[in-house]
Design a protein around this nucleic acid. Structure first.
Lengths: 187, 187
DNA sequence: TTCGTAGTGTGATATACCTCACACAGTAAT
DNA sequence: ATTACTGTGTGAGGTATATCACACTACGAA
């Protein structure tokens, strides 16, 4: 059933059939349509989501009602308002479908249970967290060192699929430039 | 000896005396003077560093020789060129003392050994990694949503000690503004 | 003392980017 | 066929910030 999840985990730690069955039993599968909300700002965050198929945006809305893309999440990625999930506080961001999307959902209790009961999964989540941190740090360095043009090129180089699947106005909101400026970049 | 390390770890997971002794045996202590390099761009990164006392800057130098502050690290923080450390590749950043600094050093082999042999330490490092990710994500959101003035205020609110201990030109290099602009901010 | 260096402030000008406005194409619903 | 909506491009003008230049202070070394 969750073959994709198994392959995803086994890129980092090998699992026996029994181990994977135990792990998989903690997830529930959900399907959403384009434009649906998985997380709504202000509400509780029940799950950390593993994306089986589809595409999500994690959106932060500031005081002036302007929307900023904190992250995109496609197949094989984990996403949530992780701060709200991890500290069980209310969401400051929204998680929204850009395409019809299937996810596997894990509660915080089960996340901790898997870490405690299955050492391999603790190591798996540590590896995910470390690379998540490195990805964020990379983006910070990019914003410190590069102008709009360069950041746009880096984004397309790193995630060429986004160019096909996401409107440019959202790429602009991810990069922190206006859609007009992005449109004027020569590329 | 490493009482500070013990308190630091026990904020997250309690340890028996034996467990802590085992953990502590994997660290070596080093002392550096202001201006000394713990990590030099282009060289290997042997350690992940826990700062016992003092203050460090993690610096990325771009093509145009301009320096950007990726991070400051003070007492009770972990720091390294984590990508280079974790993947055992050569450093793309430098880690430099802003003050005389004492650190506890952990190799990647021992980091993994502690994760494998001491489940509590695996959970400890997972918690650190998760909060490290959240800190980086917070900074990304700040750069997307706020102007220089606001980012400067947020920085001083979050780490008031920095204002006393580091020159403003370095705070500017952390925020991604010129030192002149920072100097002109009304605060 | 005198010198060099680090840190900071400030004026003048340049520039990257934002904002507002409008136009136009593609698509889905009526 | 008409309408509404989304996505995109582009001009004009405004603003935040960068860059360059210079001045001033504090401080340690010779």
């Amino acid at each position: 059933m969750h073959q994709i999840l198994r392959e995803h985990i086994e890129k980092i730690v090998p699992l026996t059939d029994d181990e994977f069955a135990f792990v998989a039993s903690h997830f529930i599968s959900k399907k959403y349509k384009k434009h649906q909300f998985l997380i709504q700002e202000g509400e509780a965050v029940k799950y950390h989501y593993f994306v089986v198929s589809g595409l999500l945006k994690l959106v932060y809305t500031d005081d002036t009602v302007k929307q900023h893309i904190v992250s995109f999440a496609m197949e094989d990625w984990w996403e949530s308002d992780f701060y709200a999930f991890y500290t069980q506080t209310e969401a400051t961001m929204s998680l929204v479908c850009l395409e019809d999307t299937e996810v596997l959902c894990l509660t915080l209790g089960d996340y901790k249970k898997l870490c405690n009961d299955v050492p391999k999964m603790n190591r798996f989540f540590l590896e995910k967290a470390n690379f998540g941190f490195l990805g964020a740090q990379r983006r910070i360095i990019s914003s410190l060192t590069s102008n709009s043009q360069e950041r746009y090129e880096q984004l397309l180089e790193q995630y060429p699929a986004l160019f096909q699947r996401v409107p440019k106005s959202l790429l602009a909101a991810y990069l922190g430039v206006s859609r007009e400026t992005l449109s004027r970049l020569s590329s």
